[in-house]
């Protein structure tokens, strides 16, 4: 189905947003880690929103996809570092991350996507925790000993390249994943998938009666979202931090962070996760500096306040305000 080009205008503010962020990181010395952390939050929100925002299904175990993605990259580097593959290893790692997260999302999809609402949320928590205990209990990939592969990277690429990979290129990939997630979101929104999912979000039974193959579209969005999460884990956690422990990557608070980001920005909007990620990241960073040790106590009531008083999120409110102005076509 062809759509006029102007339907894709909203990608412009996304591009500008990430561009400015990237620019600040490159121009201002000594801020790159902060910028990459912000990009991580934006990407996390963006990828999570792709499925959650469109369908209204809350995947509480979403972090499992990041976890298996991290393992994908880790396995590649840990076991292949002395095979002389060079940078191909990174590519293999990314592919493994995508494959692992696809497989997991298919498995989860087969079970959990039949469920709705709270049942879905609980089932996905079960998947995340169960998977972690499987890795620990059956001692898969070293079990709880995890994998530390800084040395492997240095052996394979040399010290300088390894450093550049983890301190710079990993973050660049995070930006890439964030942008890719935004593009995919917009594509789906302007496509059959998006229409079907919108119908489903409003009333799943009615959508079914209308003859929409609900399961298929749900699965498409779910897998896309999972792959993006896998790539994010592979870059932001494995390649950047060069270690992986199961308790560390299957930690449910990352899902909570994703939900907070999406809600701050506005669920189901394209710009929301970027705005939400920036607000969340910057305020968290600042609170950690200003009030070390108290920031969670301050942050939690603010979250409640925002959810109760601004359920549409920042972009949701903005959307209403620009309605009927020339800006309208840029903001969704």
């Amino acid at each position: 189905m062809m759509r006029p080009v102007r339907a894709y205008y909203p990608i412009l503010p996304v591009l500008i947003g990430y561009g400015i962020l990237f620019g600040i990181g490159q121009m201002v010395p000594g801020k790159w880690q902060l910028i990459s952390q912000l990009a991580f939050f934006c990407a996390l929100g963006q990828a999570f929103n792709l499925f959650m925002g469109m369908t209204g299904y809350v995947d509480f175990g979403y972090v499992a996809f990041l976890g298996v993605g991290t393992y994908g990259m880790a396995v590649s580097i840990y076991y292949l570092f002395d095979k002389g593959l060079g940078l191909t290893m990174i590519v293999i790692g990314m592919i493994l991350a995508a494959v692992f997260s696809t497989l997991l999302s298919l498995a989860v999809g087969a079970v959990a996507l039949r469920l709705r609402g709270a049942y879905f949320a609980i089932a996905t928590i079960g998947v995340n925790e169960g998977f972690r205990f499987l890795i620990e209990g059956a001692r898969i990939w070293n079990g709880s000993d995890g994998m530390i592969f800084s040395r492997h990277m240095k052996t394979a690429f040399g010290r300088e390249t390894a450093m550049a990979l983890s301190m710079k290129w990993a973050d660049v990939i995070v930006f890439g994943v964030a942008f890719l997630a935004a593009v995919m979101t917009l594509l789906y929104m302007r496509n059959k998938v998006g229409y079907a999912l919108t119908a489903l979000r409003e009333d799943e039974d009615a959508a079914k009666v209308m003859g929409i193959n609900v399961t298929r579209y749900k699965l498409i969005a779910f897998i896309t979202s999972a792959i993006l999460a896998g790539l994010l884990g592979a870059s932001a956690w494995a390649l950047k931090l060069t270690y992986v422990y199961p308790t560390d990557v299957f930690a449910i608070h990352y899902t909570v962070e994703a939900i907070i980001i999406v809600l701050l920005g506005g669920a189901g909007t394209l710009l929301g996760p970027i705005v939400g990620g920036l607000i969340y990241g910057v305020s968290k960073y600042y609170l950690a500096i200003v009030l070390p040790g108290f920031q969670l106590m301050i942050f939690a009531p603010i979250i409640i306040m925002i959810i109760v008083l601004f359920p549409e999120g920042t972009v949701g409110i903005l959307k209403k305000r620009v309605f009927g102005t020339p800006l309208e076509k840029f903001i969704i």
Binding site: G117, R201, L263, A267, M297
Partner: peptide, 24 residues
């Protein structure tokens, strides 16, 4: 729309408030 999203997050935050207050 997606009421789970809001209630999950609110109850989670309530938990955090309790934990942090007890910690203090």
């Amino acid at each position: 729309k997606a009421p789970e999203l809001a209630t999950l997050l609110v109850t989670f935050s309530i938990g955090v408030i309790l934990e942090e207050s007890v910690k203090q």
